[in-house]
Amino acid sequence: MATVETWTGTEVRALRQAKRMSIESFAAHLGISARMVSKWEARGTGITPRPVNQAALDTSLASSDTEVHERFARLTAGSPSVLPNPGGDDSLPLPRQHQHQLRHPGDGRRMALVEAGVFLAGPGKEPVWLPDYYIDVFPVTNGDYSRFVAATSHRAPQHWPGGSSPDELLDHPVVFVTWDDAAAYAQWAGKTLPTSHQWEKAARGPRGHVYPWGDQPTPAKCNSRESGLASTTPVSCYHSGVSQYGVYDLCGNTWEWCQDQPSPGRHELKAGAFTSPFARAVPSAFNDAAATMLDDDTGFRCCAVDPPRPARRVVAP
């Protein structure tokens, strides 16, 4: 699949046409004004969008289906800015600020360090102090959950035919899990579910940014209802939507269970989902559900305050 080295108005028009979207709907998809999209397209190769919009365009293209990529390739044939077959997710280096990561020996999953300190929590940005902790870089996937099911004979999610995850969903977040299912996985892995404050700090950073990537509302940086995909996406899909700790999918894709119990039998959920409007994906927003609830848009990730040793440290290049 193609990637774009530097977007100009010409590639913007090609992507919009490949996605078969109007100027208004494409602008809403990117989180910008229709007037800006019109300006880009009118000026063609004579205009280059700002870096934040370049990132949004990158994510929009990367999350598109095969047919969109094929149409985009035809529309941009001969463009020196469009590069074919850039390589998979593993070819992308982690940004340097994402160095403090390790592999947890319980389930082998990558975790990011969130350092101790005060962060600004909730819509009112109230100061809250938290000690050091690690949080999963990605939501627990169907592949991860498969190993748990095989090791414990725990009930498989209902969307797995014959009790096994479809191959094409192995790198998608596991769904159709109750709070008890998520807690059982966490216990098996030697971890816990995150508190809502742990989850929120990982998403917003110590300064209380509105979104993991900053304060600009950009729906193209996550898998919310506005993406139009109507399903989960691979957990490493949205590179431009990571938090400052290198943590993915803290907006959209699936709701995630937290420890907090605001009332008996109910637990908090964070992140929003592919079924939710972008406005519901704000990390400071409150949502909860009955512990027995399970749906196609609800999963989880885990935390660890003091991961057991040995643990292999992952250092960014």
Rank of each mutant, 00 (worst) to 15 (best):
T3Y: 02
T3K: 11
E5Q: 14
T6H: 13
W7I: 12
E11C: 06
R13Q: 15
R13T: 11
R16D: 12
E24C: 04
F26H: 01
A28F: 11
H29D: 12
L30T: 07
S33I: 00
S33N: 01
P49Q: 03
A55Y: 01
L57V: 13
L61I: 13
S63R: 13
S63E: 12
S64I: 15
D65T: 10
D65A: 14
T66W: 04
E67M: 10
R71H: 14
F72M: 07
R74A: 15
T76D: 08
T76P: 07
S79P: 04
G87R: 08
G88V: 09
G88T: 10
D90F: 09
Q97T: 02
H98Q: 10
R103S: 12
M111I: 08
E115R: 14
F119L: 03
L120R: 11
A121D: 12
W129S: 09
P131E: 06
Y133P: 02
V137D: 09
N142M: 05
N142P: 01
G143K: 04
A150C: 07
A151M: 08
P157G: 05
Q158V: 14
G162P: 06
D167H: 10
T178Y: 04
W179Q: 01
A186Y: 07
A186S: 05
K191N: 00
E200W: 06
R204M: 12
R204A: 11
V210Q: 07
V210P: 01
W213A: 03
D215T: 08
S224V: 00
R225T: 00
S243H: 08
V247L: 12
C251P: 05
E256K: 08
Q259M: 07
S263V: 05
L269K: 10
A271C: 15
A271M: 01
F274H: 13
S276W: 02
A285I: 02
F286Y: 09
T292H: 02
M293Q: 12
T298W: 00
P307D: 09
R312W: 03
P317S: 14
